[in-house]
Design a protein around this nucleic acid. Structure first.
Lengths: 339, 339
DNA sequence: GCTTGGCACTCGACGTCTCGGAGTGCCAGG
DNA sequence: CCTGGCACTCCGAGACGTCGAGTGCCAAGC
């Protein structure tokens, strides 16, 4: 009974604080929400909630502010999922539908997410390791210089130049090309690497050109750089961190340019469908200890190829943000499904 | 004589102001620089310089601060070029040498520039229009679905998928492929577009597949999106704008995410070799009216394919920044030359 | 036993005021 | 034309008082 009201109080405080960005007092609370009790009662509840660690006071005789623990409780038990408006859904769909290639999909998603949530959006490019090989192309730039192109099912294209020790005749090139495609087309990256190893090993007499091309392909497939690509957008929203600035935003901006750090941030993320919320110091990265991170996986066929999400102040509209992240993830997955 | 000293005073004021970020007074000036005159004399000079519009006072009885016009004079006539240290040059070279492809070159350049200058760096991707076609590849994903890949001399790769109305036999595909390459390989983009037009027109009997592929290639070549790519780095340096924040940095951050705006910023830029400095409101873009932009062209064979540069407060170390921008541009050009 | 109104208390935000110092402009003398 | 001196201006920091929001606690009421 009282327990129930306490939770209602906590919910109300979180909502008010998110809206006003100012510590909220007992009187304002009972007025703005239809709590049928007096401020004094609310004060008692607030004292209890503070005792349990869900609230703090910036200073004596100021209003209360939720702690990380308070937000956590709110997200876990109190945050009713806030469905997006029809207009928003339509906006998402039409905004993403115009995308022409993978880069475009990612960059549009980032912009969309940051605009919907008014936070910093982060979208990881689909990871290489789970995608399949669509095609391998080998082109002679010069008799002793080849361009190797690797096309993946996610739409990603990797290309490398190979310098040979000796000229390679055209029909050898054609043979190499078809042998490569026979062995790797349609395979998952991991299997393709193995297949390439077999192909090179089976190569008798040992051919330097084949070995070189295979080497480059294996490199490209296992190249971690490709897994590490992320897009960031809406950094301007950091400027809304009205208070503490130089101290708080500078390191954040720096961290946002460190893609490795960002991947760590996204990395632990969940399977498609569930939205993960990491509040304050729950995350592994020091720079983001005073922010919250809302992420989810995405990818075709409910197969989480990568992660996308947003970074914002712990003081954020969790239900709305979670809804937006989930919606964008779904639409992006659908787009990837189609292509 | 006096004229000469006045310029020396202006130079000293610019240097001191850049270093200390505080309005500089007459007394401090004579002490810090070896001016063999009294503060009173300097005051007279300062008054004259203010009269001519090179200096202002934030308020009566504060020190002087250079105006945009003052910076302009400094850059044009007073800024001795500050050569980079050997260590810096070596750092540039080794940092850029590890790059494996075009994306990598650009992203490394951006990071390098922002670190060297401690400003926000902006690097435009080499524009499509001046590069030449290295190769065109057409791959059948399905009998009625083609992947068209366009490889340019700058290392850029564009790829598009074409859906056909009817299946295309393999040897027709091979014929199409070789015809395409015959007509466009080695050509400058502009010429390639014309050649493609001719090829399609000469196509008798009219072939839907050829027409579709040609169309897609022409699209890719004239696609402005490709020309509009820019990379931005070092946005965290904006946080050093100690003073006015929410008012000043927010719109800047937003503008930095608008690549179209950035291109406008870089767009008017100079040929390779000369460094362009745009101070304050000299630029065309409102958001950047209180910043300076230092740019230069870059590209292989002294052929300016694109522009790179930095954006920073008008109060910046111009000689150092210009040197860094020029140096990076040279090294990047050299890298592009080699590949 | 929970709720409520009352009351004294705390503490930051804000405006006013004062004071010191840095810097200037000007003038008269070298 | 330079220089030292001098009066003046004005910003910024600190001290101070006031105000109001908000709290904690207590005794009374349901």
């Amino acid at each position: 009974m009282q327990e129930e009201r306490r939770l209602a109080v906590l919910r109300a405080i979180v909502q008010d604080y998110v809206a006003t960005e100012e510590p909220v007092g007992s009187k304002a609370l009972v007025e703005r929400h239809g709590l049928n009790v007096s401020p004094a009662t609310v004060r008692n509840d607030m004292a209890a909630l503070e005792e349990e660690g869900y609230l703090t006071q910036p200073h004596t005789s100021a209003g209360r502010v939720p702690t990380d623990k308070g937000y956590r409780l709110f997200v876990d038990r109190l945050g009713a999922v806030k469905p997006l408006s029809v207009a928003e859904k339509r906006a998402i769909a039409s905004f993403l539908d115009g995308a022409v290639d993978l880069d475009d999909v990612v960059s549009r998603s980032v912009r969309l997410l940051s605009q919907l949530t008014r936070q910093v959006a982060v979208v990881q490019y689909p990871v290489l390791s789970r995608s399949t090989v669509r095609h391998v192309e080998v082109v002679a730039l010069a008799p002793d210089r080849l361009l190797v192109i690797l096309i993946l099912s996610t739409g990603r294209v990797e290309q490398r130049v190979v310098d040979l020790d000796a000229d390679l005749p055209d029909d050898d090139l054609a043979r190499l090309r078809s042998r490569l495609n026979l062995s790797v087309t349609g395979e998952v990256i991991g299997a393709a690497v193995t297949a390439l190893g077999d192909l090179a090993a089976a190569d008798e007499p040992h051919d330097a050109a084949t070995a070189a091309v295979v080497q480059v392909l294996v490199d490209a497939m296992s190249d971690h750089r490709s897994d590490e690509r992320v897009a960031v957008g809406g950094a301007a929203n950091l400027a809304r961190y009205g208070d503490s600035f130089d101290s708080a935003v500078r390191p954040l901006l720096e961290a946002l340019e460190e893609h490795v750090v960002l991947l760590q941030l996204l990395g632990e993320a969940s399977a498609s469908g569930t939205v993960t919320v990491r509040i304050g110091a729950e995350g592994p990265i020091e720079e983001f200890a005073s922010t919250s991170v809302v992420t989810t996986g995405y990818g075709p066929h409910d197969d989480a190829l990568a992660t996308l999400g947003i970074v914002g102040p712990t003081r954020m509209d969790y239900p709305g943000t979670m809804a937006a992240v989930r919606a964008v993830s779904r639409y992006v997955s659908r787009i990837l499904d189609e292509s």
